[in-house]
Design a protein around this nucleic acid. Structure first.
Lengths: 338, 338
DNA sequence: GTGAAAGCGCTAACAC
DNA sequence: GTGTTAGCGCTTTCAC
């Protein structure tokens, strides 16, 4: 491995000078600079990131904690962070949290050991106090997809309530009167907010949503399928179905078809997230676009900024970072009456 | 930040002793060990990875280079590596290569700066000589989804030819006689191998595959759709369609439906990869399972092993690491005649 | 403009 | 069993 010493020796200068030309700062004579640059090139010298991180107390990595890279949503999230990282010449350090509180914390701790410049955290289960404490300790920590008032300026999140409202309104505008919802547990997280949005808009339009028409299941395709089967088994009547997310919506469509119901002729279905899977099914899924990639990129830049300005951290701003979902009309909603 | 020095000071021992108890090696008295452990706990001491990497010349990270995390296939790949990394107490350092040769190399170089213990590389475009050279320089480098004879033992790959043969055979067994293929460019990579497998099995069974029945397009849903449209426009007749991958297969199904053709009644369609998107479409896609997660996990363990045994690297073994795709029967192939 | 030198936090060889 | 010490490759302050 060629080190800064090697370069210095060959160039006949001190390592300080080499360091200066690498970072393009400090005063270095033009001749000297050119000479060192050439030698760096010739020797194919690459500064050692670990040494650099140790000496400068900040590394060239940005940490990301997500539940599971194998799910599209998190892949999108990660690729957004990666984009931001690349733009800032940083590397991605990943840690999966696998949906467990302890593992989430482990993941963060493990990233801290590496002195990441910033950390983007998609926390599912850690409680607010833990996260607030963490935010206090780690200047470059930004939460994605979660809002905690005390650390508002560290949160990049989506307005789930308004998203669900838009979806519901779309269904109402299409002339639907009989609603059903398939959602997931965790009432105090996304599913809860979305259901809240649905209920609110329905109420405002004087449409009833019987409790029996809300079915809970796991937030995946199977869950959607089972939930609709359960709804049907209970004898629920509905011509509009709101699913917690795209995966559930697609499972729901399967179950509906299997029951001899046509989508969207008999039942309109709307999803949430706008994963690419939504254009794989037939009918293509009408859904709410969750700009997760964009949000991840934004979060990354924010995290980097925060990590650099100690002041911003010291005086927590009240500004938060809210994104809005928007409607993607495709074919699973019968809106010809509009 | 609490360092090993702080711990040593509080415990009233030397840093060497602290280091010993952290690594659970070397001789340390029981009392002393317990005491140090307790203090580490109390102080919430976390060893600094960068310092450790610098001093020991090997880091706790494993690098991964993939084109793009936002695509399911690579998400699966990354999660496989992540699993292996976690099992070995390593962290994931990611770098997207974004489908360009230079970027691929950049990504690798950038990982090398961090002294990764091992690197898993999904190389799409780098030429063989470059990769062979790289393998020579980096003991822990393993290629995934690519086979290069000279560095056979560094390759974890899938037998695309046999996979395509199995798929083709399935269609033949189902009674099909008129075939079409939608594939992608890059004849010397996966698409080429798969087409080769198809041709081979067809020939063996005395079934003709007119050149006109092979259509090339980009390897995504749109590509599949366009390719089938082109096929149909040319007036090709076929009752069995082999797609390069699941994305193309689903696009193909869309185009077929749009043309008034039923799948599988009029045309049987088979994909490749077994992405979860295959169970989103209707009919659910019959496809070849590409065990990418398993392969990635395997590759990770292999890479770690290689990086540790200098000998294995010095004497390149002729053993390679080949995986086989297997058939996942679902509903897009009309096999009731079987 | 350039160099010398003191660390950064840790590992590992060696001494006791 | 335990401590001392010499680096690992780099950044950064301070002299000159």
């Amino acid at each position: 491995m060629v080190t800064i010493n090697d370069v210095a020796k060959v160039a006949g200068v001190s390592i300080a000078t080499v360091s200066r030309v690498i970072h393009n700062k400090g005063k270095v004579g033009d001749v000297c600079r050119a000479r060192v640059k050439k030698i760096i090139e010739e020797l194919a010298y690459r500064p050692n990131s670990n040494a650099r991180a140790l000496a400068s107390k900040t590394s060239n990595t940005i940490g990301v904690v997500t539940p599971n890279l194998s799910m599209s949503f998190f892949g999108l999230l990660a690729s957004g962070v990666e984009k931001g990282a690349r733009e800032n010449n940083l590397k991605l350090l990943m840690a999966n949290s696998l949906y467990e509180t302890e593992s989430e914390l482990n993941a963060i701790e493990s990233l801290r050991e590496n002195n990441c410049k910033a950390i983007i955290l998609h926390s599912e289960y850690s409680d607010e106090n833990t996260l607030i404490k963490l935010a206090g300790e780690i200047p470059g920590l930004v939460l994605i997809n979660r809002y905690i008032p005390e650390i508002a300026n560290r949160c990049v999140w989506l307005d789930n309530v308004s998203g669900a409202q838009i979806a519901t309104k779309h269904l109402i505008d299409a002339g639907h009167k009989h609603f059903a919802v398939v959602t997931s547990i965790y009432q105090n997280r996304d599913p809860g907010f979305r259901v809240k949005g649905v209920k609110h808009t329905l109420e405002k339009n004087h449409i009833k949503l019987p409790k029996i028409n809300i079915e809970e299941a796991s937030a995946n395709m199977d869950g959607g399928e089972q939930a609709v089967k359960a709804l049907l088994a209970k004898g629920c009547k509905f011509d509009a179905l709101l699913a917690y997310n795209d995966m559930m919506a697609i499972g729901a469509i399967h179950a509906l078809f299997d029951a001899g119901l046509r989508v969207p002729e008999d039942v309109s279905v709307i999803g949430f997230d706008d994963l690419s899977i939504g254009i794989a099914c037939r009918p293509r899924l009408t859904t709410m676009h969750y700009p997760v990639q964009e949000m991840a990129l934004y979060a990354t830049n924010l995290a980097i900024k925060l990590s650099e300005s100690t002041e911003a951290t010291a005086t927590p701003s009240k500004q938060t970072h809210l994104f809005i979902a928007d409607l993607v009309k495709r074919d699973s909603v019968n809106d010809k009456s509009i």
